[in-house]
């Protein structure tokens, strides 16, 4: 895992939890010196990445910020894979909150 290019192989890549669930993209990285110490996920990090458009997107998306220590990254391949299920990091909350409502509609669980 020491031979990956952080800018190209991690930033803006898909996050998958231990169950293979898609749970966000890597929106930002926390650096200490030359070392990546954490992954930042959530609309709260969009503002600093895309000027005015990013601020508008952040405003719509909300201020949620999730920080995941780099030690929680199991491996990096096509996606960035985490060691544990998404809820343990506070990821995928919106989908989890919406799900019970959708399940009430017939056919939602075909």
């Amino acid at each position: 895992m020491d031979k990956i290019h952080i800018g190209r192989n991690v930033l803006d890549h898909q996050l998958l939890d231990s169950d293979g669930r898609r749970c966000g993209n890597v929106d930002d990285l926390a650096l200490e010196g030359n070392e990546v110490v954490a992954i930042h996920v959530g609309p709260g990090y969009w503002q600093r990445r895309a000027g005015l458009l990013g601020r508008v997107a952040g405003f719509i998306g909300g201020s949620n910020r999730v920080r995941i220590p780099w030690s929680e990254v199991e491996k990096v391949d096509a996606a960035v894979r985490l060691r544990r299920p998404a809820p343990e990091y506070g990821l995928g909350k919106i989908d989890d909150r919406l799900r019970p409502y959708l399940e009430r509609v017939p056919g939602a669980k075909r």
Partner: peptide
């Protein structure tokens, strides 16, 4: 939208399997 923001997506999942995608 789902790919850009990293949400769960897919038509083979039932709608409740990918709520934001379905909505």
């Amino acid at each position: 939208l789902a790919q850009f923001f990293g949400w769960e997506w897919g038509r083979y999942r039932h709608p409740a399997g990918a709520p934001r995608f379905a909505l």
